[in-house]
Design a protein around this nucleic acid. Structure first.
Length: 104
RNA sequence: GAAGCCGGCCGGACAGCCGCUGUGGCCUUUGGCCAUGGAGGAAAGUCCGGGCUCCACAGGGCAGGGUGCCAGGUAACGCCUGGGAGGCGUGAGCCUACGGAAAGUGCCGCAGAAAAUAUACCGCCUAAGCGCUACGGCGCCGGUAAGGGUGAAAUGGUGCGGUAAGAGCGCACCGCGCCGCUGGCAACAGCGGUGGCAGGGUAAACCCCACCCGGAGCAAGACCAAAUAGGGGAACAUUGGCGUGGCCCGCGUCGUUCCCGGGUAGGUCGCUCGAGGUGCACGGUGACGUGUAUCCCAGAUGAAUGGCUGUCCACGACAGAACCCGGCUUACAGGCCGGCUUCAACU
């Protein structure tokens, strides 16, 4: 997954990796360490927000396996900041996915 | 009212929309619908104790670790309660690693004469004995530890007697040791007698004494399904290896270990009804116990318990269950309740 990454979108606090799959819906994985989030409470909050954002956008993401990585300092970001950053990343990845399907 | 002590409790609220997940029911069913439950006082640190599970366990010895005033509570504890002793505070209260230093060993910097079989730096004394004498004394041989000085600590303290000067040398009081009596389950306390004092500190130094302790942990462990190959090389081999988990004897077992190569970790159970919560009654100073009524209160496993919006306020701290309990410790915005103490003022 990390080696075969097809599309990557990232900023200072979040990295999103994507690989196309054979299912007809997207799959989400999260990787947020306590070390990067600060403590367990912040880590769980980040993961919840990631899942919620994914749920709201999954119809636009096609057949992709996605991994969202939390980078150092992510625990200091607010929910609003994470939602808006993920919206940007989802759009970028969806655009790539669509061009891929067109070129097929 | 101010300052403070002790004990207990809370840890944003409400509404709408959209989600996740446990349980129950329905739909002739592979997903929906309805109902209902869904993080904490510390879930944390993983520092103790216990349950549970598997392994080990004839027995013995030696290690190792822990606890350390007494009594009680408890499944158990290094926890809690009550009491004692010592210390701190005007007080309510708080703190204590609080057994043994005449069993042995070690250590005690600097200063100081001396830091432990004691000793004598500055001093004090010159009674007895010896020598000299200018008859004032001086020296020798000695006596002493009162005073000074050093130190955290110097062989009990204060006073009187005593003396050449002094000294528990004698006496009184205090302290200490021993014996007895009284009270108390006990730690211990009080009283009486007796001994002239036994000879520093340190045991979170070794140690001694008393008591306690088998090992590993839910990735424990059980079951189901699927799958694979007992391949190659090297070393050792009964004075050996393994079971074995501190070591030895013992007991059981017979190939064992290492390297290279290859393979697996899917599901179900364990998994939440428990030393359980709450109310009442009774026993107990209390920790707690007993009886009774009532309630069911997270159970995930790429790991749920949430997101957005609005309104309000004192604008929200520390922080996320992972087999389960009992403690301890640490973190914590702000707020509430009860009891008590001291000071000030009023009546």
């Amino acid at each position: 997954m990390f080696r075969d990454c097809e599309v990557k979108a990232s900023d200072r606090f979040i990295t999103v990796l994507a690989v196309s799959n054979q299912l007809h819906h997207p799959c989400l994985g999260t990787a947020v360490s306590v070390k990067n989030a600060g403590n367990a409470v912040q880590r769980n909050r980040i993961k919840r927000v990631i899942r919620e954002s994914f749920r709201l956008n999954q119809d636009n993401l096609g057949s992709l396996d996605l991994v969202v990585l939390g980078r150092p300092g992510i625990g200091s970001r607010s929910n609003r900041q994470i939602f808006s950053a993920l919206d940007t990343h989802w759009r970028k990845i969806a655009a790539h996915a669509h061009t891929d399907t067109h070129t097929d």
